[in-house]
Nucleic acid binder design. Sequence first.
DNA 1: GTGTTTCGATTCAAATTTGAACGCGCCGCT
DNA 2: AGCGGCGCGTTCAAATTTGAATCGAAACAC
Lengths: 177, 177
Amino acid sequence: MGHTRWLNEEEKRAWTAFTTAHALLYRRLEQQLKRDFGLSGLQYEILARLSGAPDREMRMAELACALVNSKSGLTYQIGQMEKAGLVRRRSCPSDDRAVFAVLTDEGMALLERAAPSHVDTVRELLIDVLTPEQVRALADGLGEASRRMAAGPGEASPPAAGEAACSGAEAVADRGA
Amino acid sequence: MGHTRWLNEEEKRAWTAFTTAHALLYRRLEQQLKRDFGLSGLQYEILARLSGAPDREMRMAELACALVNSKSGLTYQIGQMEKAGLVRRRSCPSDDRAVFAVLTDEGMALLERAAPSHVDTVRELLIDVLTPEQVRALADGLGEASRRMAAGPGEASPPAAGEAACSGAEAVADRGA
DNA sequence: GTGTTTCGATTCAAATTTGAACGCGCCGCT
DNA sequence: AGCGGCGCGTTCAAATTTGAATCGAAACAC
């Protein structure tokens, strides 16, 4: 409970650059995806995740977790995408509660058409702007931060009951084939 | 129009770590702010920006731009915050179209109460997880990326008419006093 | 001075997101 | 068997976000 260590200049720069860069880049990607393929950013990510999963399918909760999204939000989007024929729902034989979201061929095809420009943009606006060392710093530093946050609520709180924190096998995520 | 250079393993790690870390951290911050102070993430950012601005006031468009948010979205939020007494609207004497959002004393007080835990969390979950070199890499690399994206739509398109890209003096943004 | 174009903010309807219930099936225990 | 705790996905209402109009005021050109 000490007096809060404020961020120094460089830390402040890092934090604002982090949030700003994310916002700007994400907005660009969304505009592009919507304009060229009628996809929202979330929908693209869903396609990408599923494409990298074992049978091109994942359970709802697992997917929601991987995307850092709420369950109800995912239910909604999968509904939209199902209407559009991009994914299909399949109930699990061994567990009647579970539902798999399955990537359809049509969904896969759309992802393959959308992926190139998406990756081009990520590269042009982010990756290629960074030095190789900076890329490594992001991968290592932010990777570690993600891992810790995904693990549990920071504090030394015993796993407690009720929340099981995301597990999931970290699909590769970006690239559609 | 080449064949799209896909991301290699490390680049992929960097990109997913970037988006995942952002999503996880932002979600934490939102929960905390909402639970402890009844603020959304956007509202906190509005308070923070205004607190760092010249007279604790900014024009709507300038603020929207700084926050990488739509104008209509900002209108809505400022409306909410005005009801709550956190900000006030002031019309500009020299330009009847313009509107300033002004931080009230009450808003400032709330920010000062909220800032410590906010910064503590950012530090605990991100900054302190990174090495000093990684912090610098974020500040430099992502700072550069932000600058370029804020400038203009990448392409070598002549400024064109209609959009003037964000200008604005990059207020410090984080810290409430 | 008019007419036109651009800018600044708001409005409005539609789409999405959020979080708290809810319904139901799995599990372990007695 | 029967019971209670939970996990999984969905539902629902409320809050928010989005983007295309809209309205009025400035800036410019003629």
